[in-house]
Amino acid sequence: MRRPRQLTQPAQSEQVRFETVELFAQGMAPQQAARRWGTSRKSACAWHARCRDGGVEALRSKDPSARPSRMQLC
């Protein structure tokens, strides 16, 4: 089984979402598109649905919603 690709930057994740949806538009099957980018078929289908319902803007990365770190620098 192949390990998923680790994406560290939101821009990298966003680019994978855009390119996966583009592969769908070109007629590629969901499983093939997901395999190409090292993601799950479920994620690829969810991105496609988000793009279909909300356009390309729905695929954009959102600001982190987590609380700021409480760790203090010395």
Rank of each mutant, 00 (worst) to 15 (best):
R3Y: 03
P4G: 05
P4H: 07
R5G: 05
R5H: 08
R5V: 10
L7G: 06
L7N: 03
Q9W: 12
E14A: 10
E14I: 09
E14L: 02
Q15D: 06
E19C: 00
L23R: 02
L23F: 10
F24D: 00
Q26N: 13
G27T: 09
P30H: 01
P30N: 05
P30R: 00
Q32A: 06
Q32V: 12
Q32M: 02
A33T: 00
A33I: 03
A34N: 02
A34T: 04
R35V: 04
R35H: 07
R36Q: 11
W37M: 01
G38H: 02
T39P: 00
T39V: 13
S40L: 04
S40W: 04
R41N: 04
K42T: 13
S43Y: 09
S43I: 02
A44E: 00
C45N: 09
C45V: 08
C45G: 10
A46P: 01
W47Y: 12
W47V: 08
H48T: 09
H48F: 14
R50V: 01
R50S: 07
R50E: 06
C51K: 06
R52Q: 11
R52H: 11
D53A: 07
D53P: 03
D53Y: 08
G55S: 12
G55D: 12
E57Q: 13
E57Y: 09
A58H: 06
L59W: 15
S61H: 15
S61N: 14
K62T: 11
D63T: 13
P64G: 15
R67W: 14
R67D: 14
R67E: 12
P68I: 15
R70V: 14
R70H: 14
M71T: 14
M71A: 15
L73I: 14
L73E: 11
C74Q: 15
